[in-house]
């Protein structure tokens, strides 16, 4: 993939180029506008927002709304800011991403390299789970979590996200591993490596690109989840639910600048993940389709 050059692009004249770039800039501006508004307003005192122009740069620059949102704002009944909920989100996202990715990798490994009777059926069922709307499973899920005694807790929420995630992660890893010849596993078997040893020593070390895809996908989805968080988290709500409580609070003045800061705080981790690993994301998505 390293020797992909500009030759693959269609040659264009200057006029078309100007047109294309103009269009691209226009769209970029359109998409960046909300972010601009959020950042600008999160750095103003509230009075500047209520008195007029949302689009203007702050007259007085201040970080107070950020401090408020992070550690002081009223969430529900406690004036804790978003900080503890941020921590909850981390406690939910990290194990859920880790477990669903590892399970997905294991599933992909079994479904491609240790095929068994009915394996396509199993894969079909896993794929099907990707298409079940969240709302349908809310009540059955609540019953199951209750029976397991982990309702209203972080482990419960982790379980829900893992269950919902393995459909996607399995799909990713299955398609990725399918490209590698089964002979790889056979060679390792003759060399004397067993099921788990082959997984750890041979399959996982070659899974870098697809692991990036899986982690980004799972991280974004779980971090941004609202419905499961609101339904199953009990007292230990994730960031998204807390943000909603912050923004929707019906008492007092609407502190838009604090809301904006909170919203950015909630979006920051996913943004960070994309910036750090984004290029690998595209590369990983391509890895299955382009034969090295």
């Amino acid at each position: 993939m390293s020797n992909v050059t500009q030759d693959t692009a269609v040659r264009t004249s200057t006029v078309t180029r100007i047109f294309i770039y103009g269009l691209l800039i226009l769209f970029a501006a359109y998409y960046l506008m909300p972010l601009f508004v959020m950042i600008v307003n999160s750095l103003k005192p509230l009075s500047e927002i209520t008195s007029g122009n949302m689009m203007a740069l702050p007259e007085v620059w201040t970080l107070e709304p950020w401090r408020q949102a992070w550690s002081k704002a009223q969430i529900g009944i406690e004036p804790t800011g978003l900080k503890p909920y941020f921590l909850n989100s981390i406690l939910i996202v990290v194990p859920a991403v880790f477990i669903s990715t590892i399970v997905g990798a294991m599933n992909g490994y079994v479904l491609t390299k240790w095929r068994f009777r009915g394996d396509t059926l199993v894969f079909g069922a896993l794929l099907f789970s990707c298409f079940i709307p969240f709302q349908i499973v809310l009540i059955p899920m609540a019953v199951v979590l209750g029976k397991m005694g982990i309702a209203g807790s972080i482990p419960g929420l982790v379980l829900v996200h893992v269950v919902y995630g393995i459909g996607f992660t399995t799909l990713y890893y299955r398609n990725y591993y399918a490209v590698f010849p089964t002979e790889l596993v056979r060679a390792a078997q003759i060399d004397g490596a067993g099921f788990f040893r082959i997984f750890w020593r041979i399959m996982l070390p070659i899974s870098g690109p697809i692991t990036v895809v899986s982690v980004i996908w799972q991280f974004t989805n779980i971090w941004n989840d609202f419905l499961f968080g609101a339904s199953f988290a009990g007292q230990q709500q994730p960031m998204t639910v807390a943000l909603n409580n912050l923004v929707q609070s019906s008492t007092g003045v609407k502190e838009y600048n604090v809301h904006f800061a909170g919203a950015i705080l909630a979006a920051l981790p996913t943004l960070l993940v994309y910036i750090v690993a984004g290029r690998y994301f595209v590369r990983g998505l391509m890895a299955g389709s382009v034969k090295g």
């Binding site: 590698f180 002979e183 790889l184 056979r186 060679a187 390792a188 003759i190 020593r201 041979i202 070659i206």
Partner: peptide, 11 residues
């Protein structure tokens, strides 16, 4: 055994 795809461990 020597395989058609060589089956060398890529990593």
């Amino acid at each position: 055994m020597v395989f058609q795809s060589y089956a060398l461990y890529p990593n």
